[in-house]
């Protein structure tokens, strides 16, 4: 990997973060003149009033410095954002927005990472089997079963899962990340409790994403079948399992890894909604509360952190990719 590629990729990441931060700065100022007054006027019409509202207004006036010139406001805003300092939340005043987000982030990252990896592995395996001439007939039935599922948004699938497995058959909890009253600690019982609660939300993501990976992998397998190295492997008399795993699947997988980076944004946006449906205490859960309370600064903070996470995940995948696929040489166009 050349230094030029590394620099270009990191530069792209910083550009994305800067654009996201600037959008957050511009939009409220486009909509109305004074973001604070407008925000609180709206809260009053909705009848939401936290105790010590004047205190919140004063804190924000001081923070945003609206009497200063716009350029100065912009740079002090960027400086704050760079340190992940989003100020106090309106709903949970005086709780710091950054702190609220940090408390929620692990839940979302855990749920998402687990379900994305499971869906990626299962989908690619199934897709590989679909594109493999020697696989049994029943695999073909997966296409009509999994394809409609991938057309359904995850959160709607979640509703069906809750109704069937939690409400009707009472096999799983209705929502939440752990049983009420459970002691939050690093004990096996609590870990199991968390896993138990995360099965349905994870399943709703896995079920709908698997079909996507499956189709992509099937296409790649089919084009790989005619390659010379496949004939070579067969001529060498290698076992079919070895040919399948080490020759066909390994080579077909590579473009799928790039696909992983591209789908990440969609997966994170969908999982925000899954959390709302399952009352799962991650980023989506607090976002939903922030929207209900028109806590605009909290919404901004959450959106910004999520955008940065997606961009960071894509950056990491892009940097890993040249190591996974040695055929790829990055050259200047």
């Amino acid at each position: 990997m050349s230094l030029g590629y590394l620099l270009r990729r990191v530069g792209m990441f910083l550009l994305v973060v800067w654009v996201a931060a600037s959008i957050n700065f511009v939009i409220p100022r486009l909509a109305r003149g004074d973001p604070i007054q407008a925000q609180f006027a709206q809260l009053e019409t909705l009848g939401i009033r936290t105790s010590g509202m004047d205190q919140v207004v004063a804190a924000y006036k001081n923070r945003l410095g609206l009497d200063r010139p716009m350029v100065e406001q912009y740079f002090s805003y960027l400086w704050n954002v760079a340190r992940f300092d989003f100020g106090p939340s309106i709903t949970y005043f005086p709780a710091d927005i950054g702190r609220l987000i940090v408390q929620r982030l692990p839940w979302t990252i855990g749920l998402l990472t687990a379900s994305t990896i499971i869906a990626f592995i299962v989908g690619n395996l199934l897709g590989a089997l679909l594109g493999w001439p020697g696989s049994s007939r029943w695999v073909k039935w997966l296409v009509p079963v999994l394809m409609p599922l991938s057309a359904i948004p995850y959160y709607l699938l979640g509703l069906i899962l809750i109704f069937t497995f939690a409400f009707t058959f009472k096999l799983f909890p209705l929502g939440g990340a752990y049983s009420t009253g459970a002691k939050i600690e690093l004990a096996p019982a609590f870990t199991l409790d968390i896993l138990y609660h995360s099965i349905l939300p994870a399943l709703s993501i896995v079920l709908s994403v698997t079909g996507f990976w499956m189709l992509g992998m099937r296409g790649m397998m089919v084009t790989n079948m005619g390659e010379d190295y496949m004939i070579m492997a067969e001529a060498k008399g290698l076992s079919p399992l070895r040919i399948f795993l080490r020759y066909a699947m390994r080579n077909a997988m590579l473009p799928q890894v790039t696909g992983l980076a591209l789908t990440f944004g969609g997966i994170i946006a969908g999982s925000v909604l899954v959390e709302v449906i399952f009352d799962y205490p991650g980023m989506g859960w607090i976002l939903w509360r922030a929207i209900r309370n028109t806590d605009y600064f909290l919404i901004q903070g959450i959106v910004f952190v999520l955008v940065v996470s997606v961009a960071l995940a894509m950056l990491v995948l892009d940097l890993i990719y040249p190591f996974v696929d040695r055929r790829i040489v990055y050259v200047r166009r």
Partner: peptide, 8 residues
């Protein structure tokens, strides 16, 4: 493409 549209 990098910025999730739904979030914006």
């Amino acid at each position: 493409l990098t910025i999730p549209a739904l979030l914006i």
